[in-house]
């Protein structure tokens, strides 16, 4: 997985994809890679898991070989215009900048291409071995992944279109980029994951690396009959709850393609601790 240059991590909101992104960053760094982990829509989650107060648009080293930043849309727009489109200097007048902000807020695909452009641009620049993106949740992911194609449809010619074409190539190249889907073994996250898999089948905009199932419970090595014979009390109730949840998880796991399973972290101490504990799981073969 760490041999690619760019990994996008996404899932239904709340399944823990920011924690998974952070854990992959820590694990890849310990495997010797220099990593950039980027937060896209809501960078607070990623920041917390990496033990950073807040993220800036400038990359910051938060652990050995782990750099992190947040994609800020107006800074990204500025960088896009100056560096990627090589707009002639002097930089656009204030009015032009405002016009462009109108464009970013309104035109289909533009907001998304500005955001998804940043990680792709970091891959082209090649300062890191691996760029990890805590991508928008599944509900919005495809409008980001499809943004280069949308732009290509919309703009007949010129630098934006050219740039969009190059992005499509980078995102679509399995040797370079891939998508990691995160889910939990529950009804709605599994349903959304399956929808996303169908959609990737129809629109192969990016290569699927794997589906990671987060918060899977361990099996309780006590037969249900033995639990039923226990006297009433917390031991019995905890065992019953565990077994019921475990059975329901089994059911939803069977609806998913096989892939890595991350454990449910009971009573864990905080976001940083969660990322460290998950990173340790990636390191065990």
């Amino acid at each position: 997985m760490f041999d690619r240059k760019l990994l996008l991590i996404s899932g239904k909101g709340g399944v823990g994809s920011s924690a998974v992104t952070a854990s992959l960053a820590l694990a890849a760094a310990r495997a010797g890679r220099t990593v950039l982990a980027m937060g896209m829509l809501d960078a607070l989650g990623l920041a917390a898991h990496l033990g950073a107060e807040d993220l800036d648009y400038e990359a910051r080293e938060v652990a050995p070989r782990v750099y992190t930043l947040a994609v800020d849309r107006s800074r990204a727009l500025d960088e896009y215009l100056r560096v990627q489109l090589r707009l002639p200097r002097p930089t656009p007048t204030r009015q032009l900048a405002r016009a462009l902000n109108v464009l970013v807020d309104t035109a289909p695909g533009v907001r998304e291409i500005i955001s998804i452009g940043k990680p792709v641009y970091e891959v082209w620049r090649g300062s890191y071995d691996l760029v990890l993106v805590d991508a928008p949740p599944l509900g919005q992911l495809f409008s980001y992944l499809r943004a280069p194609a949308t732009i290509a449809d919309l703009v007949p010619a010129g630098p934006i279109r050219e740039q969009a074409g190059r992005m499509q190539v980078t995102l679509g190249d399995p040797a370079t980029a891939g998508l990691v889907l995160v889910t939990t073994p529950e009804e709605l996250p599994v349903a959304e994951t399956r929808e996303a898999l169908d959609r990737l089948g129809r629109e192969p905009v990016i290569d699927l690396v794997t589906v990671v199932t987060n918060r899977t419970l361990p099996e309780l090595a006590v037969p249900a009959e033995a639990v039923a014979r226990l006297p009433a009390g917390p031991h019995r109730r905890a065992a019953e709850l565990h077994q019921a949840l475990w059975a329901s998880q089994r059911h939803w796991l069977s609806a998913l393609p096989s892939g890595p399973r991350l454990p449910y972290l009971f009573g864990s101490d905080g976001p940083e601790q969660v990322a460290l504990r998950l990173a340790a799981v990636w390191e065990t073969p």
């Binding site: 707009l87 703009v155 010129g158 934006i160």
Partner: peptide, 17 residues
């Protein structure tokens, strides 16, 4: 301003918006 931006960007985007 919109015209200028459209020239730079390669399409009649802003005016239409």
């Amino acid at each position: 301003v919109l015209r200028l931006a459209d020239t730079v960007l390669g399409g009649p985007l802003l005016e239409e918006i």
